[in-house]
Amino acid sequence: MSSIAGTKSGLTWAVHISVVLLVALWLFPTLGLFVSSFRTADQITSSGWWAAMLPAERNESLRTGAPDSQVQQDGQWLIQGNLFEGATDATISSWGTSMRDIGAYAPGDTADMGEDGRLTVQENGDYRLVNSQEFSGRRGERVFVTIQTPPEFTLQNYKNMLLDPSNREGMTKAFFNTLTVVIPATIIPIVIAAFAAYALAWMRFPGRALLIAAVVGLLVVPLQLALIPLLKLHLAVGIGKGYLGVWLAHTGFGLPLAIYLLRNYMVGLPRDIIENAKVDGATDFQIFTKIILPLSFPALASFAIFQFLWTWNDLLVAMVFLIDATGETTVMTKQIVELLGTRGGNWEILATAAFISIVVPLAVFFALQRYLVRGLLAGSVK
């Protein structure tokens, strides 16, 4: 019975588990970046993003007031105040007078320190140090505390990275530079590839089979192989490093896949529609613009997703054909690399910059994802 057509395979469960694992591997890092981008530096260093909704704990060493602040009261010498020395939402969950035993006392307990007096610490940081003899020395007593801070989220990270014009490390200019690169570098190859794919699919001319074979062969040419020769060509013809050069580079590198994908889709379109249009007197250009393009939208959207994601996340091509010494054309990937060097310890800044860089690709993918599978499977089934 297992061989009957239409029955479910015994490996269906393995496929489902694989899909769940792949989704989890993609979702958890993205969710971590999103949560971390709204946290403060102290919160990030004290706990992981998965504990963002829970109070964070950290150990600190604080001091009481100096002996010069003592007062005499009822025959006792008294130093009192607040360990935090300022307004805060933090609370003390445990404390101690030795680093070896930070949790020796709970808030409200009194520690007998012998000749140094008796110390009482409250949950909000208030302390009271009492001694029968006058305190001496220049510094206060050291108190080791375990501090709990409530969950804290802020928009300041995004304000610094997007809305602060004085911040040279911000992402605003890099964001618009990236859009300047990506939009033309996505549209130009789609337009050229659509014309070429129609010609290879429905027009008869000598050498068509060789052109199709050449397109398939170009799919396996390594990108790195053409970078330096292409840059030398750009410099020789006067293009140099700039937006035009990076547009042409992305167009050249993206055309083989675009032509191959669109040609496979257009070949599978009903022949009767095109033949009827020709009988009615339609030209090839009219057939292409009024029939082929509307019917090929899934394939166009599929390639647009790939090309957009590739150019948006590109660093290598931008480094070779675009980056200048002034930084006026710096794209987001290069800006993040620079942040790793200058702000490598500021995880809140890095998380915010990284999440800003993936918001637009996510929006594009989810907006066009229903066309992705239809475009990728184009021409696979007759």
Score class of each variant (00 low, 15 high):
Ile4Gly: 02
Ser9Arg: 08
Val15Met: 06
Val15Ser: 04
Leu21Pro: 01
Val23Gln: 01
Phe28His: 01
Phe28Gly: 03
Pro29Gly: 08
Gly32Gln: 05
Leu33Gly: 05
Val35Asn: 08
Ser37Val: 04
Phe38Asn: 12
Gln43Val: 11
Ile44Phe: 10
Glu60Asp: 15
Ser61Phe: 09
Gly65Trp: 08
Gln72Asp: 13
Gln73Leu: 11
Gln76Phe: 15
Ala90Met: 10
Trp95Ser: 07
Pro107Asp: 00
Val130Gln: 04
Gln133His: 14
Glu134Val: 14
Glu141Ala: 10
Met161Phe: 05
Met161Asp: 05
Asp164Ile: 13
Ser166Cys: 04
Lys173Tyr: 04
Leu179Pro: 07
Val182Glu: 00
Val182Pro: 00
Val182Asn: 05
Ile190Leu: 15
Ile190Gly: 00
Ala194Gln: 01
Arg204Trp: 09
Ala209His: 13
Ile212Trp: 07
Gly217Cys: 12
Val220Glu: 08
Leu223Arg: 11
Ala226Ser: 09
Leu233Glu: 09
Leu233Phe: 13
His234Arg: 07
Gly238Ser: 07
Gly240Pro: 03
Tyr243Phe: 15
Trp247Gly: 01
Val267Tyr: 00
Ile273Val: 13
Ala277Gly: 08
Asp280Cys: 01
Gly281Met: 04
Phe285Gln: 12
Phe285His: 13
Lys290Thr: 04
Leu300Arg: 12
Ala304Ile: 04
Ile305Ala: 02
Phe306Gly: 03
Met319Trp: 06
Met332Lys: 03
Met332Leu: 04
Lys334Cys: 00
Val337Glu: 12
Gly345Arg: 14
Gly345Val: 13
Glu348Gln: 15
Ser357Lys: 11
Pro361Asn: 10
Pro361Ala: 09
Leu362Met: 15
Val364Phe: 12
Gly375His: 07
Ser380Arg: 15
Val381Cys: 00
Val381Gly: 01
